[in-house]
Design a binder for these strands. Sequence first.
RNA 1: GGACCAUUAGCUCAGCUGGAUAGAGCGCUGCCCUCCGAAGGCAGAGGCCAGAGGUUCGAAUCCUCUAUGGUCCGCCA
Length: 572
Amino acid sequence: MNLFARMRDDILAALADMQAAGELPGGLDTANVTVEPPRDPAHGDMATNAAMVLAKPAGMKPRDIAAALSPRLAALDHVAGAEVAGPGFLNLRLADSVWADVIATVIEDRDFGRSDMGAGQRVNVEYVSANPTGPLHVGHTRGAVFGDALANLLDYTGWDVTREYYINDGGAQVDVLARSVYLRYLEAHGQEVAFADGTYPGDYLVAVGEALKEKVGDAYVDKGEDVWLEQIRDFATDAMMDLIRADLAALGVEMDKFYSEKSLYGTGRIEAALDTLDGKGLIYVGTLEPPKGKLPDDWEAREQTLFRSTDHGDDVDRPVKKSDGSWTYFAPDIAYHYDKIDRGFDALIDVFGADHGGYVKRMKAAVSALSDGQVPLDIKLCQLVKLWKNGEPFTMSKRAGNFITLRDVVDEVGPDVTRFTMLTRKNDAPLDFDFAKAVEQSKDNPVFYVQYAHARIRSVERKADALEIAMGPPQLSDPAEFDVARKLAEWPRLVEIAAKNHEPHRIAFYLYDLASSFHSLWNKGNDDPSLRIIQEDHPHVTAGKLALPRAVATVLTAGLGILGVTPLEELR
RNA sequence: GGACCAUUAGCUCAGCUGGAUAGAGCGCUGCCCUCCGAAGGCAGAGGCCAGAGGUUCGAAUCCUCUAUGGUCCGCCA
């Protein structure tokens, strides 16, 4: 039940009545009529812009339309009052009973806030997709949390979601990995080795080298790459993916599918994707203009096979084949997205790090071209995370030497705090993550503040249980109680907005607001004992007051569930 | 030279795809809390929404230009 959507239906019905009665011209477009909570609570519970939107097409003054609409809405049972205000707003005040109904609905209907706006359409959310060359670092962590919460959010709003990880196991970087593992392998055989530039020196490969020795003995010692490169590449990539899967599991992220770039090679799928583009006249051989400004030192004009991405919104055409005839990294990516389209997804979402921002237009161009504009691709960029501890930059890592891993973060503050904190900023805003503040138990830590609200409610409920007082029908009287109910009523609307915009951070901010209004009510109980939930001498009153916190806890749990955070029963 | 993202209170940031007097936390000021459910509470000050144009009933929000900061910019992924 979305109160705002319901009221909008009421308004549209009233407008139709007015048209039938000749008070309004027929055939008006009502698509822009909205019902929103007013910023100023003095303006009532809801406001509609209907009169202002319709004034021009109807050829009438906004206030006249509003004045005619007002009595029709005021006559509804659940509307206590309707007033024309400002330039033509219609402010609506709802009957008190509506808010008690909201509470009751939240408690009875486990799906309060769920939406069917996705209508069962299939969406593919690709996130993390880190190279399989080492453990996930803190930047991946943000992408992982963001992508996972977005996937949850879309699931909550009626989409059929596939969570997917693209393994970049086809490029030169996995050869580098293989050579690095080979060095560790030699080390395991007691040889002294030196890690040249362009190899991965991280300790995490020591175990892989030893495992390789376990498996093949000395078969590769003193042998050339032609003997071992391919085998070690597969072995090392598998080991890294095991590591990455474990990292994701520690964060509570579970993928539906891992898609291998390598699986695209030698199967004709890259060729098929490019043939499709070629069939649309979008592939040609040519030479790109040199980039403006200062040229790279070794720049020289070369003839390449190019994708005419400029036909689909890109700034320049992009090479798909190197001058030696091999694929660029872009080619398998085109094939991969072609495969997603082929698998029948209705919408695609890619979550990238901000350093891949330059890649957005060409990828969108490719999907647009391959799907004839039928499959929308949204690319969400996650900005950098800066780590702090007590206000000092934090750069040490136990595991990997020079970068902070996902494990470092999760070990330090736990998966729940990691996830919530990563969502306290918009994805495209840089994020400061302070290890100390993230676990601080104070009001300026939103994670704690939201968890505290839930724990408080659970504490009250345990106390009520001990007193053998059961929850009864909701009773609301104080303005602070209505404020909480109003906040609860916004939940379904907020979920839809967050899902439509692919912005899970809105959930986190909402939960903070909801927690805040609940804490505010609780604090009033300090001064006014009649507002306390548990009133031992009045079990009947207590029963009526228990519903509101139950409803708050229900929505907090639902919201935290979307974020992938477990609500706490009590604080320690 | 170009692309993308950002620019909102002293600081860190929200802001409902265009609505009314722009919000929160921190910090600041004042009051309360040492009997109550206080890992505190209440209230207040603080703004040319970077700047300039434009679009319309109405702009922090959409468009153009400018400034500042970040990310990136042909065979690395």
